[in-house]
Amino acid sequence: MLSRKGIFSQKYSLYWMMAPLFIYLAAFYLYPLIYSVYIGFYEWSLGDATKTFVGFRNYVSAFQDSQFTGSFLNTAIFVIAAVGIELTLGLSLALLLNRESWPMRILRTVILLPTLITPLVVALTWKALLNPDIGALTYYIRAVGIDIGRGIFVERGLAMAGIVLIDVWQWTSLITIILLAGLKGMPIEPYEAAYVDGASRWQAFRYITLPLLRPTILIALVVRTLDAMKIFDSVFAITGGGPGTATTTMNFHIFKVGIQHLKVGAASAMSNIFLLFSVLIGLFIIRSVFLSARRKGGAV
């Protein structure tokens, strides 16, 4: 048994210093997570005094719920489209902004502005701009002859595209800044050597920039993918998951089950599935980029 002196000795000081962090993590991360897993096994409506243990029934019911499985598909479509476009645009903008000139310096600051606005405010602004009857943007879209039917958020085939558009507008600049930081940290020597050997700009980009930027792209991809999977604000404020179920994402469906219907047991089970899925996706992205880098012998 350790003496008091022993516990408070230099040897254990590191643990004492980290104790507040562990307490914080246990209280605000671990406890909610364990509690969520716990109530996922119960049939429980918020406000009811009793909970009934139902084992895995909430999990089975979640997979039998067509709205939940549909929301899974909608979320996947949203994430692939939004993050794909954001990454492509973000990389292009980062390459553009990597030049040193005063307009670029100003642009680097301005481009960050969308990320500073509350997502709900962004959603409501876009809702007004794309209002099918009196929206300014709708007017110009129609004026240039683009067929959007009754309106972007009214047509089932276009509503998700509208939600993707808003996400791209708000978060592309975040990817741009992450990738720009990666570009700024690159060594100049490989480019000098490549250009001396007669490499074109495209070849320099393809065989030097992209491989060296891969770790930064990985960070941007993981951060944005996990964040995009939680899409909620614009769905809540603009479409309410509609038309029909066209924009019902997993987070929005879980919110409806848990907060509107107060079925917290069922909602927790869905949240746990969602969490597991998010972790798997994150691991998949990291693993596939690592494997690809190893195969090509590139940097990770």
């Binding site: 099918p132 009754r150 009214v154």
Partner: peptide, 21 residues
């Protein structure tokens, strides 16, 4: 109804009437 009506809430519907649409 106006084209946007499938996405109307109460305030949208009222606006559509009050603006003469």
């Amino acid at each position: 109804a106006p084209p946007g009506a499938p996405n109307y809430w109460w305030d949208d519907r009222e606006t559509s009437y009050r603006t003469g649409m």
